[in-house]
Amino acid sequence: MTADASNTPVPRDKLRVSHEERDSVVEQLRDAAADGRLDIDELEDRVGRALTAKTYGELAPLTADLPGSAALAPVPPLVIKSGMQGAARTGRWKVPAKITAHGGMAGVRLDFTRVECTLPEVEIEAYGEMAGVTIVVPEGWWVDSDDVDPGVGGLRNKTLHPETRLPGTPLLRVTGKGGIAGITIRYPNFLERRKLDKAKGL
Rank of each mutant, 00 (worst) to 15 (best):
90 T>I: 04
118 T>L: 13
19 H>Y: 13
28 Q>A: 15
149 D>T: 15
70 A>I: 10
18 S>H: 09
84 M>I: 14
70 A>F: 11
187 Y>S: 05
178 G>E: 05
81 K>C: 04
188 P>M: 01
185 I>F: 06
100 T>W: 07
117 C>Y: 08
88 A>R: 06
187 Y>G: 10
75 V>H: 03
120 P>N: 06
104 G>D: 06
52 T>F: 08
92 R>Y: 13
82 S>C: 06
85 Q>P: 00
85 Q>E: 10
132 G>H: 00
178 G>I: 04
158 K>M: 14
177 K>L: 07
7 N>Y: 05
114 R>E: 15
191 L>T: 14
164 T>K: 15
197 D>N: 12
99 I>E: 02
140 G>D: 05
5 A>W: 09
48 G>I: 02
131 A>D: 04
74 P>N: 00
58 E>R: 00
189 N>T: 06
32 A>S: 11
38 L>S: 07
19 H>G: 12
126 A>N: 08
124 I>H: 06
16 R>P: 04
138 P>C: 04
141 W>S: 00
126 A>Q: 03
148 V>H: 02
86 G>T: 01
66 L>M: 03
113 T>E: 05
185 I>T: 11
166 L>R: 15
59 L>C: 06
150 P>G: 06
148 V>W: 11
61 P>M: 07
38 L>F: 14
57 G>Q: 02
68 G>Y: 05
201 G>F: 09
34 A>M: 09
87 A>H: 06
110 L>Y: 03
119 L>I: 05
96 P>E: 00
179 G>Q: 00
56 Y>C: 00
202 L>Y: 14
62 L>N: 03
175 T>W: 03
166 L>K: 14
186 R>S: 13
17 V>D: 02
36 G>L: 09
19 H>C: 06
123 E>W: 12
45 D>E: 15
19 H>F: 09
108 V>P: 07
75 V>I: 13
106 A>G: 09
190 F>G: 09
103 G>A: 02
147 D>M: 15
136 V>R: 01
133 V>F: 11
133 V>C: 03
48 G>S: 12
57 G>T: 00
161 H>S: 13
146 D>S: 14
101 A>R: 01
149 D>G: 07
190 F>P: 01
66 L>F: 04
35 D>F: 04
154 G>Y: 12
196 L>D: 10
25 V>Y: 08
54 K>R: 15
182 G>K: 02
2 T>Y: 15
30 R>H: 07
63 T>E: 02
71 A>C: 04
100 T>L: 08
97 A>C: 02
197 D>Y: 15
200 K>H: 10
85 Q>H: 14
195 K>R: 13
24 S>V: 09
17 V>E: 00
45 D>V: 05
157 N>R: 05
120 P>E: 08
202 L>S: 08
195 K>D: 13
172 L>M: 11
170 P>Q: 03
104 G>Y: 00
17 V>I: 15
198 K>E: 14
80 I>V: 14
106 A>H: 07
17 V>L: 03
18 S>D: 09
129 E>M: 10
